[in-house]
């Protein structure tokens, strides 16, 4: 198994799909000659040439819309949105056009489009380049959404996304691009969309994490006085209820760990579903561990505090287990009252 950084795994996944299918093309700002600002399209221009690997102007609405049109007429475009925030100017083409074509053609038109975007805090890029923004994508029927948590999931989810006949958004936590691990490549490395993965096993709680928080939650579980199933959701739309429910039915406690603000975060959906369907199985109220409802601040100390750390996750879960109640988040504790 090759050892790869996450950006290398992404380049490898795209290259493997491009070799397998001549309809796969790559579009984005500085993805060809410069191989992507995060080096997530390394070697693609050289191997596949300028017809299939294209630098675009800074025109997200234009090139994402063009990708929708190309996908609807037979190609399988992979579009890079350098920072997920840049999706804002192109959201109509994704959510209101591309996501609706299959429905509005009575099933006759498919849109096999992959939209990749870097997400998240931790690199000091400031508030307009540090959000996760899953909330821009969930709640749009017709779209699928996957989030990478490291090199192996990035590889597997990317290949599945490119093969899927629907528009799929794949989010890539920016601070993980340089993370390295062994990656199963080839068919065996492909990860079905909608399927979660158990990243750690334990008895006291089910900790559901996504993207950057998978590592945080796994670290907390390894250090804690408690043990937990850590589930890497991998896909958010659809999400793997079976794996989560099976685990919660066994542990009796649900915790979500999210990098996004509390309000509107993906964990609310998971908690609502579990609370409704497994009400009788729960030994404690579900706990959501999130960032506060503020824009992502600049400044190393502020940014680190903004994102849930493994120490904080550990403390919150310990308190949940000790008291049977949901502990207040750090920003509501007396010593931190703003």
């Amino acid at each position: 198994m090759p050892r790869m950084r996450m950006n290398q795994a992404i380049s490898a996944a795209i290259a493997d799909e491009m070799r397998a299918n001549p309809d796969v093309i790559v579009l984005g700002e500085d993805v060809a000659v410069a191989e992507g600002p995060f080096k997530t399209s390394a070697g693609l221009l050289e191997e596949f040439g300028p017809l299939r690997v294209r630098d675009t102007p800074i025109s997200e609405m234009g090139f994402l819309g063009a990708a929708v049109g190309a996908a609807a007429t037979g190609l399988r475009p992979v579009v890079e949105i350098m920072f997920v925030e840049f999706l804002g100017v192109a959201l109509d083409q994704l959510s209101t056009e591309g996501a609706k074509f299959h429905y509005l053609s009575g099933g006759q038109v498919t849109v096999p489009l992959t939209v990749r975007a870097s997400v998240g805090a931790g690199l000091g890029f400031g508030t307009q380049h540090s959000q996760t923004l899953e909330s821009w994508v969930v709640g749009t029927p017709g779209l699928k959404l996957a989030v990478a948590s490291g090199p192996a999931t990035a590889y597997g989810l990317m290949r599945a996304a490119i093969r899927d006949d629907n528009p799929v958004v794949v989010l890539e936590p920016r601070r993980l691009y340089a993370q390295r691990e062994e990656v199963t490549t080839g068919e065996a490395g492909i990860i079905a969309l909608g399927q979660a993965r158990q990243a750690a096993s334990g008895d006291d709680a089910t900790v559901v994490a996504l993207g950057s928080t998978v590592g945080t939650a796994t670290e907390a579980a390894a250090d804690g006085s408690w043990s937990a199933d850590v589930i890497d959701l991998q896909s958010l739309q659809p999400w793997d209820q079976d794996l989560v429910y099976a685990s919660v039915a066994r542990t009796g406690r649900l915790v979500t760990v999210e990098e996004n603000p509390l309000s509107g975060g993906w964990g609310a959906d998971v908690v609502a579903a579990v609370a409704a369907d497994l009400f009788g199985e729960l030994k404690a109220p579900p706990l959501r561990i999130t960032a506060p409802d503020v824009p992502v601040p600049f400044g190393k100390e502020l940014e680190e505090r903004y994102m849930p750390s493994s120490a904080y996750v550990g403390e919150q879960i310990t308190e949940l287990l000790d008291t049977g109640r949901v502990p207040p988040p750090w920003w509501q504790r007396e010593e931190n009252t703003p």
């Binding site: 000091g124 890029f125 400031g126 508030t127 307009q128 380049h129 601040p297 600049f298 400044g299 502020l302």
Partner: peptide, 16 residues
């Protein structure tokens, strides 16, 4: 440099 002396108190950084 993320200091209170910044034009918006160090909450924005280089781009803000």
């Amino acid at each position: 440099l993320g200091r209170e002396a910044g034009s918006i108190g160090g909450i924005g950084g280089s781009m803000h």
